[in-house]
Design a binder for these strands. Structure first.
Lengths: 194, 194
DNA sequence: TGTGGAAGTCATCAATTGTTGACTTAGGGT
DNA sequence: ACCCTAAGTCAACAATTGATGACTTCCACA
């Protein structure tokens, strides 16, 4: 959900054009999912012709893979104390308007879950760039299990908000939601450990 | 993800044909999402011509709405004690091969989240047929908030498993996952109440 | 037993989408 | 100043998809 620059008056620069395409594609994939994101619209956002995309990346699938590879550095999400992490995540999930660039990979994954090939690509990158750093940060014997749980919770919140931005809840209830989510994350992180 | 009968040799029966179409459509929508589910494939599954669908339901969107309206009785999920519910849900989420017919509505929702109109339809029905019964079963002042949290968790587990059926985990770890998920649900259900 | 209308099929249309190949244009090195 | 190559555009194709109207077939009822 990254803002996309107009790419005005910067012509004949393959590297920059390639980057514009990647940015526009990430935005479209995150917003609309693999299927609904059209090459022509991505190209229009990037300010180039649709043919360039197939030309540069080989095809839509390869573009998708390239976007995932360029996007998915969610590792920076995982730092600080457990309390800090829980609060930060809960706030991001409930309050931040359209999440964050760091969450693009999650949005892309969930919005593309129904496309078998896109799902396979995102599964692999999700494992290596999301769950593994998360498990490493969590630490301990069952870190991978906890990572899967928290990942599922984050994705679920993402889906919920994608379908229903305000969760059909009022302001006060959103505060409650954030607080309880924080507790839920903390409880999951801390269960059965010092 | 309901199995679909062959619909063999039962012709000239509008009501039954209509039901066959609904069953096939629910299956396809749940498996592939709104976009990827083609009217021709749905018709083939139901054993009728694709033209009949537009004829009976008016169009793809109306068919989707009809499927949601006919499917989403998730209310029966919500019964028993909190411990029983948590165990049942955790088992269903982690272990049951392709979930359950009762979860079709969830699958449809998450697989169709990227189609604005389908998302709007599923949001409304999800609220009335999933979150409201859930909140009612939960009870208490902040039941709606808790329902949103648990709903997100369930959806997230659904997405995770849709992308990655075994969570990249071994048997023993799946047991851990189920146990921890049960604890997570129970904790969320019980936080701040008797 | 015909006959009207519902149930179902077939052919086809219009729109969209990913992709390809031919074409044009810019710009730097000689 | 030329020209060769890379960068970019344009037009078009083939496949798919949802939708529509004309046609055919079957059943119930008079």
């Amino acid at each position: 959900m990254t803002a996309v620059g107009l790419a005005v008056a910067r012509r004949r620069n393959a590297e920059a054009t390639r980057q514009d395409i990647l940015d526009a594609a990430r935005c479209r994939f995150a917003c609309e999912g693999y299927d609904r994101a059209g090459l022509r619209e991505i190209a229009a956002d990037a300010g180039v012709d649709a043919a360039l995309i197939s030309r540069y990346f080989g095809g839509k699938e390869e573009l998708f893979a390239a976007v995932l590879a360029a996007t998915a550095n969610a590792a920076e999400l995982f730092h600080g104390t457990r309390e800090d992490f829980a609060a930060r995540m809960a706030h991001m999930m409930v309050r931040e308007p359209q999440a964050d660039t760091k969450l693009d990979s999650i949005l892309i994954m969930l919005r593309s879950a129904s496309s078998p090939r896109a799902a396979e690509a995102s599964r692999r990158l999700g494992d290596s760039r999301f769950f593994e750093p998360m498990a490493q940060w969590i630490g301990g014997a069952d870190a991978e299990v906890v990572a899967r749980l928290l990942g599922a919770l984050m994705m679920g919140m993402g889906v919920s908000r994608a379908i229903n931005p305000d969760f059909s809840l009022g302001e006060a209830e959103l505060d409650q939601l954030e607080g309880r989510l924080r507790g839920m994350i903390l409880h999951t992180l801390s269960a059965g450990r010092p």
